[in-house]
Design a protein around this nucleic acid. Sequence first.
DNA 1: GTGAGGCCGTTATGTTATAACGCATTGCTA
DNA 2: TAGCAATGCGTTATAACATAACGGCCTCAC
Lengths: 161, 161
Amino acid sequence: MSDPTGFAPHDHRACVSSALAAAEAACAERGARLTPLRRRALEILLESHKALGAYDLLERLAAEGLGDKPPVAYRALNFLTEQGFVHRIERLNAYVACAHPEAGEGHGAAFLICRDCGRVAEALASEAPLAADARGAGFAVEDAVVEARGLCPQCQPGSRP
Amino acid sequence: MSDPTGFAPHDHRACVSSALAAAEAACAERGARLTPLRRRALEILLESHKALGAYDLLERLAAEGLGDKPPVAYRALNFLTEQGFVHRIERLNAYVACAHPEAGEGHGAAFLICRDCGRVAEALASEAPLAADARGAGFAVEDAVVEARGLCPQCQPGSRP
DNA sequence: GTGAGGCCGTTATGTTATAACGCATTGCTA
DNA sequence: TAGCAATGCGTTATAACATAACGGCCTCAC
Ligand SMILES: [Zn+2]
Ligand SMILES: [Zn+2]
Ligand SMILES: [Zn+2]
Ligand SMILES: [Zn+2]
């Protein structure tokens, strides 16, 4: 099982730069183009371990003169999610940078979403959840979404305010 | 582990009527009011094991003269989901009738969503998924969404077209 | 009967997402 | 080098999903 990165204090500088490096490398290898706009969108998402709505991202991009119409944000997000650099959080209609760039493309992930501070931790799916139920039903799982809402360690009663 | 109702052939008449009866009973017990509008909304959702968008439901209601403005549908859906008679499918922005009315209010559920025919099977969450990861992170899970997309038995290559 | 609360009709608006057209750049190919 | 296909992005418009807020009506407790 993996460390669900996101809540525990860590060297976030390294976290960001290794994610960017991984994205560069993956693009180079796949012949995908990490354009300035896409790269900047990824950087913005990497700034925090929080999920950002498409329009929040767009606002940030617009502030930097990088485009201010919805399709600009959605196209960047589509590219980044297709490449596996960003995940969509269905419960929030929002997008979070992948916290496990070292895991492959299309890795299964599970998310822990703090309802208080909004941070999102990403755990690599230890095993396909539902596997037993799916087998029982003869259902062929193609991809699964696992999203838990709750309180992160810092936001639980008893932790320092 | 429970039978993930929804794909396997079954006595759907009984399926519908037992769900309605369970809803009636639960409302009676809790002092909640299953008004004609709410009841009809639930019936419509029960007709198929598919998820319906709020506006699809609204269209159905409107056709019967039961209201044609978005809040009508959303209020009914809110009531039904609060009572546990209906679940929201986050990935689809849609709503499906609970297939396990016998399970308690607020039971944890996992969904198998067929991308071809649109049917949704509901499995009672065998065990809190993520439990291990959440413990590892010191995260207190309040509720979890588990939604798998794939192909149901009838829609898999090899089954009768 | 009166007041409180629940339910619903309605208007208006907010939020999230996509379709579709056109232009510019890139990189190939004839 | 000229032509051409593919990709990225600017832009307009619209679709799809969801809620805020007000007012009327009914029911039930007091
Ligand atoms: Zn970090
Ligand atoms: Zn928190
Ligand atoms: Zn049924
Ligand atoms: Zn199917």
